[in-house]
Write a protein that binds this DNA or RNA. Structure first.
Lengths: 205, 205
DNA sequence: CCATAACCTGTTCATTTGAACAGTTACACG
DNA sequence: CGTGTAACTGTTCAAATGAACAGGTTATGG
């Protein structure tokens, strides 16, 4: 069944509040927002929206409305990934200070767990062009995973975080730059690897 | 200040419930989950978490707890971008049905406005390898912007959405595939262009 | 030894909140 | 003309809920 104009407005308001505060408005708050003299008006609309299958809520439970729109149920929880300029060795838990910014992406798109230690680096230079990683790209990395041969990793070289490809060469782990102009091969010390690439975000223009 | 073990457990429980039901548990629900005989125990922990700055909540408001991620102050509003398998011509406003999924990213990372008509396509094949776009990548596009020469666009060719590079060749707009194996040049009909690429999201592995 | 904090029990109280009841107005439809 | 439905007003009620009060135990550090 189609939603009426008013019902769409109410639904939009609920969505808006949920995004702004991560909380559903109460019936009285809905009524106040639309200037209703009575909260029954809001309750009527919510009941209609429930009947039409776009809202869901546990009975007698405060602020329990949940949007079931075909779009909304595709949503995944969003994680905040800190973007570092460079990563000093050690990588303590509390490093908010050094964060240059923050990227928010839904978990599913990158296939990362909310508990994982995930961070991002903005790529400088074109040393990873062979892996189709460009200057300015944000590379999402996970700390602690074990790199497989061919994985892109962030490594600490000369006090600076650099992206390299992790390769097993005749059984020995080495780091390789993905650019013919920098054919550097570096032997791996365990502690140098700060994270393994799990995703990438590129902004064009 | 550091969180105690118990406080971490309570925080984890709140996170878990929020992920599962998109709703904060009430104090009594927290108490019940941990087997507390009194809800004051839960209230104490919540108060401690608030004091330590990881939780926030409006007073006297039901289920209003909100987790403050350390990067909270860096967060930007998140937009939901529908992912289409293919885009039929016309591109009506209400196309949620066709959406295959949904990507949520913060506005800032991609530099897109919340009002813009943005959508995503998952790349099939390696026809855009020359622009460092790989198979499986999600390309974020904006409908309605005017492409400049060199921009990547989604075009409708043979009833299917395809990614091409938009090029002005001797003054005439043509679409070019970025792969030597497909050197196709197609003259541009205005209506064929469905969106201009503004970003890219790649999931590794 | 004493202060402090974490962690808990048990209870009461004022608000918040969803739900229900009793109506009203306007409008589309047969 | 009646009938139904959307969209309201105004009010009452009981359950849900956060907050506060009055303690009790244990550990930690000065």
């Amino acid at each position: 069944m189609e939603l009426t104009k008013r019902q769409k407005e109410v639904l939009e308001f609920i969505k808006k509040v949920q995004r702004a505060s991560a909380q559903t408005p109460s019936l009285r708050e809905i009524a106040r927002h639309f200037g209703f003299g009575s909260m029954t008006a809001a309750a009527d609309h919510v009941r209609a929206l429930k009947r039409k299958g776009v809202l869901e809520g546990s009975p007698r439970r405060a602020r329990s409305l949940k949007i079931l729109s075909p779009w909304e149920n595709l949503r995944r929880p969003v994680v905040d990934i800190p973007v570092y300029g460079e990563i000093p060795a050690g990588f303590a838990d509390e490093r908010q200070q050094e964060a240059k910014g923050c990227i928010s992406v839904d978990v599913k798109s990158l296939g990362i767990g909310p508990t994982a230690r995930t961070f991002a680096l903005q790529v400088k230079g074109d040393s990873m062009i062979g892996k189709h990683i460009l200057e300015g790209d944000y590379v999402i990395l996970e700390q602690g995973s074990i790199p497989r041969s061919g994985d892109v990793v962030a490594a600490l070289i000369d006090q600076e975080s650099t992206l390299k490809t992790f390769v097993l060469q005749e059984g020995n782990p080495v780091l390789k730059a993905e650019n013919p102009r920098y054919p550097t091969l570096v032997p791996v010390h365990e502690l140098m690897i700060q994270g393994v690439m799990v995703g990438l975000i590129r902004k064009v223009e």
